[in-house]
Amino acid sequence: MRFFLQRVAFYLFTAWAAITLNFFIPRLIPGDPVQALITKYQGQLSTKAIESLYVLFGIDKNGNVWSEYVEYWKQLFAGDLGLSFAFFPTPVSEVLSDSILWTLMLVGVTTILSFVIGTGLGVLAGWRRGSWTDGLLPVTTFFSSVPYFWLGIIAIYLLTGPDSFFPSGGGAEVGLVPAFDMYFIPSAIQHSLLPALTILISSVSGWILSMRNMMVTVSSEDYITVAHAKGLPERRVALGYAARNALLPNVSGFALSLGFIVGGTFLVEIVFSYPGIGFQLFQALGANDYPLMQGIFLIITISVLVANLLADVVYLFLDPRTRKEG
């Protein structure tokens, strides 16, 4: 329990540091959003409108950084992330809650699927080392070294087109309202197939490779020989002894990749114009939309930290050696 509280304290500190950085970094980017809006509306804004924009965005007062910082924290706790400049006047929190579900559904599901499939295949390949499964290795090495987005571009090039079943981009058919109905869901699934496959193929290979190698390492441990000598069924030795121990390093890798669900696959979303967080960040960057950027960075930071905390907790359950006595 003490260990757990120590970890929580550590993560709270890290979160504070990250959020503070998050506050400062956008302010160091040159340019300001009102200028960007003026350009966007091509000078059709009156002077008064421009002034009121400055007030609205809260960048009218040349207040000192400290008071802005305090204000920023107050707003954070109220759940107010400010107004998006690019989707003005939609609040950032609303933009995020619209897009985060897309990302979670696409990348979340594929990350979990690829971990489960990859680990399973890795256990098999490691246990049956020397059989035909070794022939898969060059293929997995190839796919795990190929970047997601490149695979995505290739997929779009080869599989999409006017007559193709696969749409080349977007989250669902244009004009459909997101809802749990028979029009939206099939269309959303159809649109997510290609990006999902792209992520799955390139990430599953990494899991297969690392799990196989851990299995091979663990298989030469003394307790595996003992398990064989005990006359335990093959399944029990493979799963309860070898895979159970080989899984440990992979679990922390999995927690990290959970943390990167939100932030890790920008390029896939951009390639497929998928309306998730990554695509949103891409647009925010183009529009100097720093409230939105801050909001996205905040979410990425928090999800990475939460995933790490999760990894620590899961590790406590999986590996008795990490549990301190007393």
Binding site: D222, Y223, V226, G240, R244, N245, D319
Partner: peptide, 15 residues
């Protein structure tokens, strides 16, 4: 039955 060399590593650490 066999008792092996590695007293330290003959037991599965997670069970």
């Amino acid at each position: 039955a066999i008792v092996f060399q590695g007293a330290m590593n003959s037991l599965n650490p997670v069970h």
